[in-house]
Computed example of a mutant assay.
Amino acid sequence: MQVSNKILQIIGIPHFALLSVIFGMMLLSFPFGVFVVFNTDIGDDINFQYPLNNLDIFKELGYLTPFDIEIGDVFIVLWSIYAILFTIAMFGPDKGFLKALSANLSREKLETKSNYMITITKWFSILILMSIIIDFIQQGFGIVTVPPSVDNNLAQFLYVSLSPIVEEIGFRVILIGLPLFVFYSHKLSIKHFFKSIWNPNRNLHIYNSRKILFLIVLVGIFFGLAHIMTGEPWSEGKFAQATVSGIILGWLYFRFGLITAILVHWGTNYFIFSYANFVSQTNEMTIEAAFSHPLINTMEMLFLISGIFSVSVLLITYFNSKKEQTLKIE
Results as ranks from 00 to 15, higher is better:
Val21His: 08
Gly231Ile: 03
Leu304Val: 05
Ser189Gly: 11
Ile76Asp: 15
Asn5Thr: 01
Gly257Glu: 12
Leu28Trp: 10
Gln156Phe: 07
Val144Gly: 01
Tyr82Glu: 11
Glu324Asn: 08
Ala103His: 11
Asn277Ala: 04
Leu180Lys: 02
Leu129Asp: 02
Leu218Met: 08
Ile57Met: 14
Phe32Pro: 02
Tyr270Arg: 01
Ile120Ser: 12
Phe256Gln: 03
Ala155Glu: 15
Leu64Asn: 13
Met90Thr: 14
Leu215Tyr: 03
Ser29Thr: 12
Val36Thr: 12
Leu154Arg: 08
Gln139Val: 00
Lys238Phe: 01
Ala242Phe: 04
Leu215Pro: 02
Ile221Gln: 00
Ile118Gln: 12
Phe309Asn: 15
Ser125Cys: 07
Ile134Asn: 01
Glu300Asp: 10
Ala17Val: 13
Ile57Arg: 14
Ile206Gln: 11
Ile132Met: 15
Leu27Ala: 13
Gly72Arg: 04
Val166Trp: 04
Phe303Cys: 07
His293Ser: 13
Ala89Leu: 04
Leu105His: 04
Leu61Phe: 07
Thr112Ser: 11
Phe254Met: 06
Ile11Ala: 11
His192Asp: 14
Leu304Trp: 06
Ile132Lys: 13
Thr40Ser: 10
Ala226Arg: 01
Leu98Met: 09
Asp73Lys: 03
Ile126Met: 08
Leu263Thr: 08
Thr230Glu: 11
Val34Gly: 06
Thr145Gly: 05
Leu258Asn: 06
Leu327Glu: 15
Val160Ala: 09
Leu154His: 08
Met229Cys: 09
Glu330Ala: 00
Leu101Phe: 09
Ala289Tyr: 04
Phe86Cys: 08
His293Arg: 05
His186Lys: 14
Asn283Cys: 03
Leu129Ile: 04
Thr65Pro: 00
Leu327Gly: 02
Glu168Ser: 06
Met229Asp: 09
Ile42Asp: 06
Tyr63Val: 14
Leu178Trp: 08
Pro164Leu: 05
Phe256Tyr: 15
Gly224Met: 02
Leu129Val: 07
Leu204Cys: 03
Lys113Gln: 15
Thr243Ile: 06
Ala226Pro: 04
Ser161His: 07
Asn201Leu: 00
Ile134Ser: 02
Gln281Asp: 09
Ile165Phe: 07
Trp79Asn: 11
His15Lys: 03
Ala290Tyr: 01
Phe16Ser: 12
Phe67Trp: 14
Leu98Glu: 10
Ile22Gly: 10
Phe23Lys: 08
Ser292Cys: 00
Phe67Tyr: 14
Asn297Gln: 13
Val150Glu: 15
Leu218Pro: 06
Gly24Ile: 03
Ser125Thr: 13
Leu218Lys: 01
Ser29Met: 09
Val37Gln: 10
Phe303Leu: 14
Ile169Arg: 03
Gly224Arg: 02
Leu315Pro: 05
Asn283Leu: 00
Pro66His: 05
Met90His: 07
Phe222Ala: 13
Ala103Trp: 01
Gly267Lys: 03
Gly43Arg: 05
Pro200Tyr: 01
Val21Cys: 12
Ile57Lys: 10
Pro200Ala: 06
Ile329Leu: 13
Lys122Thr: 13
Asn277Lys: 04
Asp45Cys: 00
Phe38Arg: 06
Tyr253Thr: 02
Ile296Thr: 10
Ile308Lys: 07
Phe214Arg: 06
Asp44Thr: 07
Lys113Asn: 14
Ser310Asp: 12
Val146Asp: 14
Asp151Cys: 00
Leu218Asp: 03
Ile287Ala: 12
